[in-house]
Each structure stands twice: as C-alpha cells, then as structure tokens.
Design a protein around this nucleic acid. Structure first.
Lengths: 220, 220
DNA sequence: TAATTACTAAGTATTTATACTTATTTTTAT
DNA sequence: ATAAAAATAAGTATAAATACTTAGTAATTA
C-alpha cells in the first residue's frame, strides 16, 4: 500500500505527541517531520515535500494560515489539513481561501481524522457538516457582496433613449462633445442638447456626477 | 418526543413511495403531505406548514430551486432539504442561494438521510463532505470574483499627497472648484492648481477620466 | 540645518461645459 | 394617418475647467 508522508505543524509538543499517538497504528501513515511555526513549516515542506501537512493555526512567529497560503502556492504537492481549536468563521474561510484542503477541530475523533487525511491525499477536499455550515454562510455572504457590488439589482430606469445611452457611454469614456459629434458625424450643438437632456433626466448638474451615476448604476 | 412534520415533493410516485418506505420506521417523522411540482409544493406549504420539505429539483411546471426560493422567503418556518440525482455545481450552489438547508444525493443511505432531517429540523444546515467540496469551489470562485470587482488588488500608486487625495475625493463627489475652495477656506486658484497636478499625475485630460480612474482604482 | 516636497496662490489665455429657449425633421406607436 | 416621442440643430449668455507659468511659505526629511 502506498505510504502517505505527513508533516505535523504545531507549537505545542504535547499536541504533536498526541497526534502521533493517534495515528501511530495507521500502517500507511508515515510521519516524516515536525515543525513548530509557519516559517519552520515552509522550510520543512521545501525539504521533505510531505503529501499532507497537518497544520495548527495559532502559532508564534508565523501563523498557520499564512504558511498555508505560501505552501499551497509554492508546493502544491503538499496539501494542508488545518487542525484547529477554533470553529470561528474567519479562521475557516481564511483557511479555505489560503488553499487548505481540509479543516478539522481538535476534538475530532480518530476515524474522521484518518478519513480526512486519506481523502486529502487523494486530492479531495474534506470538510465535515459542522464546518460546511460555516462555509455556506460565508458563501452566501460573498454572493450578497457580489450582487451589491455589481449592482445587479439596480440599473435603475432613467428612461434614456438609445441615442442618449450611446452618448452617455462616450461621455463616461472621457470623450468631449467635439469628439462625440465628430464620431457620430453630427453637430456639436446636437450633442450639447443631448447632454443637457441626459443631465436633466439623471438629475445631475455636471459631468462628474453624470459619470458617477452612470458607472454606479451601470446604465451604459 | 416532538414530531417532525415532513412534506415530500417529487414528480415521480415511485420516488415518493421509496422515501416513505425509507422513513416509515422513524417514529418521530410524520409525513403530512406530498406535492408533484414547485407550484404544488408552495401551495401545500402554505396550507400545511411542514417543518421540513424534502424537495426534488427537476420537476415539470416549476422546478425545486425556484420553489425553494419562494418557500424560504415566504414561509421560513418550512425548511427545505434538496434531494437530487445530480451533484453538479450549479444545482448545488443555486440551491444554497435559494435558501436550502441541505442537499443530499438520491443514493444517500438511510442513516444520513435521517440525520440530515433531524439537523435541519433543529435549524442547522446539512451538507456532507462530497457536497462541501463543491461548495468550497463555489466559495473560492465568488472570492475571486469579488476581488477582481472591488479591485482590492489595485489601488495603484499614483503618489497623490494627502491634500490631493482629499480634493480628488471632493471632485468625485461632484463638487466644483468653487465649492471645494469654500469648503476648505482656501483660494479657488489653489484648487485649480491642485486639480491640474492631480490630472497630470493620473495622466488624464478631463474631469470625467479623473473620476473614472478614481472610482475604478478607488484611490479615494 | 540644508534640501526637498507639499501647500498655497495668481497671471493670462483658451477651451469646454452648462443654462435656457426655440424649432425642424425623422421615427415610432396608436 | 395622426399624434407623440426622438433626434436633430442653433441662438445667446454665462460658468467652469483646462493649460502653462511663476512664486512664496510651510512642512518634512536627509
């Protein structure tokens, strides 16, 4: 059977010993090294290229999340399983964003721990239902954020005509009336009229406000 | 023991019968109704207000996701558990966004099915590790989207001084030089100078481009 | 402390935008 | 076919912005 090479990262010797004790009867697990903080972890990964890194978050010098980011970027062959005492949303989401393949709480039972390591070794991500709830909440938050930002909701009706929308678009690009008129092959006075009408419709008093509203409500 | 009232929604009689057979020995489960499509489901929820709605996705007339959206909005007391044949990302994410409390595949084993219903009845969300992987992928996608949109990455260095940034901010709000000068209690000629310097630094030739860049790179 | 950078200000000229009004022609919808 | 809306254009005047230059004072940094 293929051996899984594991690196343990935790600043507390007792915790590392506990993990070793828990996993020692897994014949296909091979604990090839230990590290006591993020820097140490990155260095060790560089040298030993473990398959799975079991990583604590709160550690001196450099925390586990920053280390995870670095490892997942530079050494994608070494996959990180976060083993944390905290189930707070920020930690979980940051870990996921950093590229962690799994997140377990330290009160995890042995069978799940083993299952998680095996899954991660096989390239799967492992998050149990408790952690999933948090992820779902985070996902929904992001969705909300994305929506409000891209103002899918807005695009308010200002009743601009086709021509007006076209001209507004050119205005927001930074073109002046002369350029727009030449571009469309019509009189600059016409553009001035359109521009005035657009401003009236959007209830603004200068070009700056015009662009602001056009961009924010992306009427363009 | 408190009874959990359940509504089954699936267009196939065989599936509904299968679910009933699976759950019949759960003494605290009470299947109080059945529906054969989204419309039917909403109507039935309205009348029977079940605790948990076990919902299929692909159904004639109205699909389960749209129904879930409606139910979670109008009848939040009835929580939806999606029971689908498909594990594709779109279905899962849409379900979550629609307000589903859980998502199971139809090959789920009985114990997990029961566990999910109980969890959801207690207000928890239930997603197993397989579904979680998909959620994580979706979450990371959203994060990427959010970042590119809000240009967290940018905020490019234009070497604006404090004063210049302050004035630029006022410009982007739509204030003209006169208003800015009065607001700061300094000469309008000074504002003109600052404005010219800002435009030179941002390499633009008019106020519109100025605002555009200021907003997009949110230098403000 | 010397030197640089930031903030202030103004002279002068030109260009561009805005305000308000009126009016003809072309399109679109009833 | 006729009314309504959209697109075109211009008169006239004023306000605001832009361009380019010079320069004194205050604040910061080497």
């Amino acid at each position: 059977m293929e051996k899984i090479n594991i690196l343990l990262v935790d600043d507390h010797t007792i915790v590392r010993d506990g993990i070793k004790a828990t996993l020692k009867d897994q014949v296909n697990f091979n604990i090839i090294g230990e590290a006591i903080n993020g820097f140490d972890a990155i260095e060790t990964v560089k040298i030993l290229h473990p398959d799975v890194v079991v990583m604590d978050i709160t550690m001196p010098e450099m925390n586990g999340i920053d280390a995870t980011m670095e490892i997942s970027k530079k050494y994608p062959g070494s996959k990180v399983l976060i083993l944390s005492m905290h189930d707070n949303e920020t930690y979980i989401l940051k870990s996921v964003e950093a590229g962690a393949y799994g997140y377990l709480l330290k009160d995890v039972d042995k069978s799940e721990f083993v299952k998680a390591i095996n899954a991660i070794f096989n390239g799967e991500k492992y998050f149990n239902t408790a952690i999933s709830s948090v992820l779902v909440a985070g996902y929904l938050n992001k969705v909300k954020q994305t929506e409000s930002q891209s103002s899918i909701s807005s695009n308010d009706e200002y009743d601009l005509t086709k021509r007006e929308k076209g001209i507004l678009k050119m205005i927001t690009i930074g073109k002046n009336n002369r350029e727009i008129a030449d571009g469309l092959g019509i009189s600059i006075r016409t553009i001035e009229t359109h521009r005035a009408n657009i401003m009236k419709k959007l209830k603004v008093k200068n070009a700056v406000e015009l662009v602001r509203i056009a961009l924010e409500d992306n009427i363009i």
